[in-house]
Design a protein around this nucleic acid. Structure first.
Lengths: 337, 337
DNA sequence: GGCAGTTCTGTGCACGGTCACAGGCGACCG
DNA sequence: CGGTCGCCTGTGACCGTGCACAGAACTGCC
C-alpha cells in the first residue's frame, strides 16, 4: 500500500487479472485485438491493485526521454518580469502534460549558456524543443538546424531559417495602433523600438513605418536592446530631448510603455492630453498604469500551447508544415490615447 | 555521429576503453576501487565516442523518477504576476538541475487540482516535493503527511504540521517596518492584511500588531484573501473610508502597496507627505512605483534553493531536521516613507 | 471433420543502466 | 613459499515496460 514498499507493476496487474503482461500492455496502450472479457478484467485489476505506470521504464523501452525543452533567450530578470514568457510557459506546459511529457525550461542568459543548452538538447535529454524569442544569427538555431530534433518556434524565424512556428502579425498589429494614434490627430508620432534583432522588434518597427508612410521620421525612432521598464524610461527621455514636439508614442511593450509614462510624467507632459501613448502585450502593466494603457492583446498562452502542439505533432510523425501560423491579436483601447 | 542513429551506450565506452561495463559505471559514479589507468582510459573513451548517460535507464535502475515537484497553491494569474514565485522557481531549479533532477511545477488553482496533484505526487512521478504557500488546514499537506515522500516547505508550516521548512521572519520584518512608520511620526497606522490563512499573512499581521502595542486599532485593519494589485486598491479605499485620518499604511506585499498607492492618489492624498506607505518583497513593483516604495527585501531565490536542498538532503538519506531555518530579510528605505 | 483465416494471447528479448557477487592479481607477512 | 588481505575487474541478474513473433482459440466454409 505505501508507495515505497515494492512498486506495483504491470506483472501484478496481469496476475490479478489472470492474463499475461503483453495483454495488459495492449490494453493500457489501447491497441486492437483484445477480448472484451480480458479488457474488463484488466481495467478492474488496475483499479484494485492501484497500478501506476512507471515513466522511466516506459521511456526506456520507447527510446524517448519524455521531456520537451522550452528555450528562453532572455536574462533571468526578464524571465521573471515579462508576463508573456510566463504565459507561454503555462500554455506549453498544459499541452505537454496532457501528452505525458515534462516541460523543462532552459534559460539562455549568456553565450556560455547557449553552448550548454545546445549540448543538452542534442544529448538526448529531450524529445523536442520550443524556442522562444530567437534572434537573428542565433547560434542556437544554427545548431538546431543541423539536428533532427523536432522543434517549433514562438515567433517568426530569422531570415534563412525554416522551422515550424506560430506567432502573431507583429507588423499588422503595430500598423493598427500607429493608425490609431494618427487618426487621433497626432502628427509627430515616435516609437521606442526594442529588440530589433528579433522578429517582434523588427516587425513592429516595420509596421509602424509602413503605417506612417511619408510622415515617418527617423529622428523619432529610439532603439533599445531589451524589453525593460528602465529602457522605456531612458528612451522616452531621449526622445523628448530629440523631438520636444512629439505628441504620440508607440512603445513596443507594456513594460517599456510604463517606463515611458514615468519619463513623460517627470517631464511634465500629460497623457494623453499632451502625448498619446500605446503599448504592446496587454499585460498587467497596461491595466495598472495611470492612465491605463491602450495596447495590443497578444494570446501568449495560446502561442505556447500551439508551439507545444507543433512539437507533439512532429513526434507523432505528422510532417511539420514549413509555414507558420498566425494567431489573432486585438487592439485594446484604454485611457492613454 | 547523428544522435538519432544508434545511441552511444556505456557498452560502447567499455569497448573503446578495453574494460567492462561495471568499471565504466564505477568511474561515472565516482565510486572507489578503480585503477588510475582504467579511469583515464574510460574518461578518454567517454570523450571520443561522445557518451551521454541515458536518464531513463538510470532512473529505472535506481528506482527513482528523477523529478521533484514544486507545488504552488495560487491562481494561475498570480503565478504569472508574483515575482516571488518565479524567483523561488528559479532558485529551486538551479539547485535541482545540478543534482540531475528535473523540476516539475504543479499549480493548484481549484479544489479539483488538489486531488490531481496529490495523485501525481503519490503516484511515484516525483522523488520529492517543495510546497510553496501552504494554507491552514491544507488538504494537500494533510495528504502529504501520510506519505513518506521527502518534502520541504517554503514558509512556516501551519499549526500541527511538522515538516522541514525554510522561510523568513515575517513577524520580525513586519514589526521592523511598522516601527519605521511609528518612528517617522505616524500616529494612525493601518494595515492591509492579506492571505491570513497562510504563515506570511498571519505572521505579518502579528508582527504589525506587536510593534504597535497599545496603539493598535482593529478599525485600521483591512483584510483581503490574495496578494493582488486590485485587492490593495480596494482595501485602501475601504481604509480611507473607515479612517480618513490614517497617516501610515503597511501593505503586506508590493503589488498590494502599488494598488494602495493608486487609491491614495485617486483620493488626493500625497505619499509620503499625507500618508506613508510600506510594502513587502522588494519586487520590481517597489522600484517602479512613484514614489518608490519602502519595503522588505525577501531572498526569494535563496528560499527556493534552500527548500530544494532540503529535499535533496532527504533523498541522500540525511535525516530532515524538523525545525525550520530562517533566511535574513532587510528593510529597504525608499521614498514612500 | 479438415482447413484457412481471423482474432486473441503468451513469451522472450531489448532498452541502458546499477549493483552484488565472485574471483583474479599483486603485495605483504609469517 | 604459501596464505591472507586489499585492491581492482568482469559477469549476470534486475529495474518495468514495449514489441515482435509464435502459436492457441475461435469462426466459417466446403
Amino acid at each position: 500500500m505505501p508507495p515505497s514498499a515494492g512498486r506495483v507493476t504491470i506483472r501484478d496487474v496481469a496476475a490479478a487479472a489472470g492474463v499475461s503482461r503483453g495483454t495488459v500492455s495492449r490494453v493500457l496502450n489501447g491497441e486492437g485485438y483484445v477480448s472484451d472479457r480480458a479488457r474488463e478484467a484488466i481495467e478492474r485489476a488496475v483499479r484494485t491493485v492501484g497500478y501506476v505506470p512507471n515513466t522511466a521504464a516506459r521511456n526506456l523501452a520507447l527510446n524517448r526521454s519524455g521531456a520537451v525543452g522550452l528555450v528562453v533567450h532572455e536574462p533571468h530578470e526578464l524571465f521573471l518580469e515579462d508576463p508573456n514568457i510566463g504565459a507561454i510557459l503555462l500554455g506549453a506546459n498544459e499541452v505537454l502534460s496532457s501528452a505525458d511529457q515534462q516541460l523543462v525550461s532552459l534559460v539562455i542568459d549568456s553565450e556560455r549558456d547557449t553552448e550548454r543548452v545546445v549540448r543538452y538538447l542534442r544529448g538526448g535529454f529531450v524529445d523536442g524543443a520550443v524556442v522562444v524569442s530567437a534572434r537573428e544569427h542565433d547560434a542556437l538555431l544554427e545548431a538546431m538546424q543541423r539536428t533532427t530534433l523536432p522543434t517549433a518556434l514562438v515567433g517568426r524565424p530569422p531570415h534563412g531559417v525554416r522551422m515550424p512556428w506560430v506567432g502573431i502579425d507583429n507588423a499588422g498589429a503595430a500598423a493598427a495602433v500607429t493608425r490609431l494614434l494618427v487618426d487621433g490627430g497626432r502628427g509627430r508620432v515616435g516609437i521606442i523600438a526594442v529588440g530589433l534583432d528579433r522578429d517582434s522588434g523588427a516587425d513592429r518597427l516595420a509596421g509602424f513605418r509602413s503605417a506612417l508612410g511619408a510622415a515617418f521620421d527617423p529622428a523619432l525612432v529610439v532603439e533599445r536592446p531589451l524589453y525593460e521598464y528602465a529602457a522605456g524610461r531612458d528612451a522616452m527621455r531621449e526622445l523628448l530631448d530629440r523631438a520636444p514636439d512629439v505628441d504620440g508614442v508607440f512603445a513596443t511593450s507594456d513594460a517599456v510603455a510604463a517606463g515611458a509614462l514615468e519619463a513623460l510624467r517627470a517631464a511634465g507632459r500629460r497623457v494623453p492630453d499632451d502625448v498619446a501613448l500605446v503599448g504592446f502585450d496587454d499585460s498587467s502593466w497596461a491595466r495598472r498604469c495611470r492612465p491605463a494603457l491602450t495596447t495590443v492583446r497578444q494570446p501568449a498562452r495560446d502561442l505556447g500551447a500551439a508551439a507545444a502542439q507543433l512539437v507533439l505533432d512532429q513526434l507523432a510523425g505528422v510532417p511539420a508544415e514549413p509555414d507558420g501560423r498566425l494567431l489573432p491579436t486585438e487592439v485594446v483601447a484604454r485611457d492613454s490615447t
